[in-house]
Design a protein around this nucleic acid. Structure first.
Lengths: 191, 191
DNA sequence: GTGATTGTTGCACGAACGTATAACAACGCC
DNA sequence: GGCGTTGTTATACGTTCGTGCAACAATCAC
């Protein structure tokens, strides 16, 4: 039996275990029993702390999305103070660890597939992507992009980065991370 | 009881039923019983004709991928003879029916999530995407793009179109199909 | 120390899963 | 018309699923 833990700590453990299971086995493997075994606890704990698997997966989505946003901010903070460099760092971070990771893609695909029937998951997705685009528009503004062009630039850049990230993780042999960065740089130059 | 049918016809019916189930209920709903009910036959027929659900889903992937390719070719054929118009038609077709369809995205996500553990599905995906990029490179060549720039242009355009298509289906409110076409046109102008 | 609170376990339950198998029925062949 | 071939159904089996529940145990208040 696992030692008694504070509710928040146990919830965090279960969320981390869910993320690991999702990455390793996909949506099909994310069962209560598998997740509980990964966390080293009894299956009943999932119901006790989250009231159901669905709620646990939603919480895991929010957690992983926050981790992604944080990784992108870390990349921006590590860049020089030049607005252009900060923008490039934000975009290029998607092609380097920990973002460019097949395990993260597997997790993301699992979320997408589980979002099919869940309104809460769809809302979380919309919020996350809107946040990504909003952050991008701020960086574009700081880099001197005209106000009336920022929205479409953000839409296009988000789509381009997403598509490159997806294919980079899905079939790594098609092109390299450096080529992905070059493609983004080309698009950026056209804006 | 369903009338006796030729093996090929029955296989086609089961594949069509699987595509409908995948679109409507996602990967989680693609069970033998649900698919068989959708096709109006007994569950045992899946094993009899395909030897298992996994094989049936693989066959469905190939079928849907072929339908997508065909829809893109129809769009190209409907365009004027100008190489630029044919290229634009090929790219823009992703933002109009039957490609820009949330049901098709649901099907595609289901394939991705099911491909996690299946080597055959991964191979099918790699083949389909390579075919898409190869066709794109031909259209780029006909439109006058230099040989040494075609590959990266195809990679970038594929990623951009994919990202826009994904987000267009996933959260239709973020931007319009016309804006997606404009983003692609902008990228194309930069090449 | 003692009692109350509550995190945790183990099990039971009904439902759904994939598949194997035997019986049935429709079609082609002679 | 009878017969073999084979598409089709219905059922059964073992497994896994999510969840509810009673019992257990660790912590805290006093």
């Amino acid at each position: 039996m696992s030692k008694r833990a504070a509710p928040e700590a146990r919830r965090a453990e279960l969320i981390a275990a869910t993320a690991r299971v999702l990455a390793a086995r996909g949506a099909a493997g994310a069962s209560v029993r598998v997740i509980a075994a990964e966390a080293g606890v009894s299956p009943g704990l999932v119901t006790h702390h989250f009231g159901g698997v669905e709620r646990l997966v939603e919480a895991t989505y929010d957690h992983v999305a926050a981790q992604v946003s944080e990784a992108l901010e870390v990349a921006v903070a590590a860049a020089s103070e030049s607005p252009r460099a900060r923008l490039a760092a934000y975009l290029d971070a998607s092609f380097a660890p920990p973002i460019a990771d097949p395990a993260l893609l597997a997790t993301w695909i699992a979320f997408w597939s589980l979002a099919q029937g869940g309104a809460a998951m769809q809302a979380s997705h919309a919020r996350h992507y809107a946040g990504y685009r909003a952050r991008l528009e701020v960086l574009l503004a700081e880099a001197g992009v005209a106000a009336d062009q920022r929205r479409m630039a953000a839409v296009g850049l988000t789509a381009l980065v997403d598509g490159l990230w997806l294919e980079l993780c899905l079939s790594p042999g098609a092109f390299s991370a450096a080529e992905a960065r070059a493609a983004v740089a080309g698009y950026l130059a056209a804006v």
